[in-house]
């Protein structure tokens, strides 16, 4: 654009460009300097391990994780022809599908009702966000008792009402749903808190004007709350999806990937390959696949989601 208007002053133009270039260089270096501390930390804790993982995925390793035989793409070919890994992928996607929308819908509902200004609301807000304070391990033990096949709370209730007992964690048809249910419960606290924060920052003038216009509750929810909340929701969705892909704790505690690999989510599968079977090569290949999946998912979200998000 600039070039056309600056045509007659060609000499000046070149000079101007050069100065600009130098300035840009300076700004770049300055910026780099500001980034240096985080770049340093990232390289040590993220970039180096990542490169190392990619490197390991082309090898077979001994038990100490030292490479022994170069196999090229063989690890990748193996995992993609293995029915177990494919099942693990399917389970992971299903798990994401079960947990993310569930968590967000429940938390949104709780946040909307907890946003009302009534007496003692602080108590409810605390209760609703309390699962954030419960560690995954503690929550899993608690759910393990609920799911217990014979003396668990759920089966006791079923029996009282004359239904058959369900093998919550041992029946392949139920296991993934059961783990998802407990995960939704565990994630509600955090999601609730973020959404509530988002709700509180919505300008109250908007509601006041809507009230003057005589808008109903649902109308306000649809036309004011949700659009104004979209940046928060977008953040929560992204974080929840990444978290769901990286679920490990509750699997290890509740099912150990069973029954019949039904809940063998990808991170758990990586853990087993690396630290139980000592196949660091295969584990690294799986980790790389997981990285690519999360990367793609996040890029898609930003491309699709950002268009619909309304920033103030």
């Amino acid at each position: 654009m600039n070039t056309e208007s600056a045509m007659p002053f060609e000499y000046n133009q070149v000079h101007f460009e050069e100065v600009k270039k130098q300035q840009r260089k300076k700004v770049f270096l300055k910026g780099l300097l500001f980034l240096l501390p985080s770049l340093l930390l990232f390289s040590i804790f993220i970039f180096y391990p990542m490169i190392r993982t990619v490197y390991l995925s082309f090898f077979l390793t001994n038990q100490a994780g030292i490479t022994t035989v170069f196999v090229g793409m063989q690890n990748y070919i193996d995992i993609f022809t293995s029915p177990i890994f494919m099942k693990s992928l399917t389970s992971t996607f299903l798990f994401v599908l079960f947990t993310v929308p569930g968590t967000i819908i429940v938390s949104l509902f709780l946040a909307v009702i907890a946003n009302e200004k009534i007496k003692g609301i602080g108590f409810f807000r605390m209760i609703f966000s309390s699962t954030m304070g419960v560690s995954v391990a503690a929550a899993s033990v608690f759910w393990l008792f609920l799911f217990h096949p014979s003396i668990g709370f759920f089966n006791k209730i079923l029996v009282t009402f004359g239904f058959d007992k369900i093998g919550w964690l041992t029946n392949p048809e139920w296991a993934l749903a059961s783990v998802s249910l407990s995960t939704v419960w565990m994630n509600i606290g955090f999601t609730f808190l973020i959404i509530l924060g988002g709700l509180q920052s919505i300008d109250s003038h908007l509601y006041e004007s809507a009230n003057i216009d005589g808008a109903g509750f649902l109308y306000k929810l649809r036309r004011i709350t949700i659009p104004m909340l979209s940046p928060t929701l977008f953040f929560v969705v992204t974080v929840s999806i990444i978290n769901a892909f990286q679920t490990f704790g509750q699997i290890d505690m509740l099912t150990k990937g069973g029954p019949s690999n039904e809940t063998n989510l990808i991170v758990y599968s990586i853990y087993r390959e690396a630290f139980v079977n000592y196949q660091y090569g295969t584990a690294s290949a799986q980790a790389v696949v997981l990285f690519i999946i999360i990367l793609i998912m996040t890029v898609i979200q930003f491309k699709l989601g950002e268009r619909k998000v309304h920033y103030q």
């Binding site: 393990l144 217990h148 096949p149 014979s150 003396i151 093998g167 964690l169 041992t170 099912t255 150990k256 069973g258 029954p259």
Partner: peptide, 20 residues
């Protein structure tokens, strides 16, 4: 047959509760 999956604690508590 009582199926407790891979969980030995569940099996043990099932036995103690007179379930198997």
């Amino acid at each position: 047959f009582a199926n407790y999956g891979t969980n030995s604690d569940n099996m043990l508590s099932g036995f103690l509760a007179g379930d198997v």
